[in-house]
Amino acid sequence: MSTTSNASTSIRVQQWQEFWFYFSASKTAVAGLIFLILVILMALFADVISPHGPAEQYREFAKLPPAWVEGGQLQFFLGTDYAGRDMLSRIIHGSRLSLLAGCVVVVLSMSIGVLLGLIAGYRGGWVETLIMRVMDTIMAVPGLLLALVLVAILGPGLLNAMVAIAITYTPSFVRLTRASTLSELNRDYVTASKVAGAGPARLMFISILPNCMAPIIVQGTLSFSTAILDTAALGFLGMGAQAPIPEWGTLIAENRDLIMSAPWTVTFPGIAILLAVLAINLVGDGLRDALDPKLKRS
């Protein structure tokens, strides 16, 4: 008995080694992953590593430039905003909210979108027509505008902003999944599973879905980064995270009056958004290459 369990664990290890082998073939993906891990660690240990509290105000040090600029102080490394709050600490704490927003939006929109897309593609008929026309209706309204309307109905706040953005992202997942499902549905291996007696659930989730995952994963990572962007945009417009919360978009919004006099207060949150989005996109590309067995060179 122990030999079989050893065999299965060694297979699992082997699978991971194989995955890592293909993933690490892309240096940019590894760089993106390392940066993403740093951001995640930063978000997890924000309280430990940030030099000051995110809301702590040092009135006497308001609008202080970054440490390497003349007049800057080392204890406020990236400078301070209009109220004398440490920018570095606020950005570090902001990473929590941005990552959370990305995760929640992607998990919500992807799970709903993939499920609806699979059902639409597999069932066809009026079910498909109903689902797809509803999705067309959602897509007919510009995404950010729809999110704004939804937040206006639900009330401003980070959670409502995430739900609203998730709703605007769902149609792209539905369309993508339905298209892949339709192209896979008539393949012989699906018929083979049918001949073997597989039911609809098994056909949808075990035969078809894994073969549709590559474009969905890419769409998911792209959505993760655009979700961070859109949450920031809603925050910037005052409809997302509310003012004292150090969300990256809100940070830019509350300091936008200072863009001429204290540009660092807007620049550094912007750079944080840029780097996080870039890293996630790089990881997404690497994941796609590593997860698709057809792309493997063996």
């Binding site: 012989d188 291996y189 894994p210 057809k294």
Partner: peptide
Amino acid sequence: FQDPFGSLNPRQ
């Protein structure tokens, strides 16, 4: 089936 490249699930 006719096509052995299409009749086996590439993910299994």
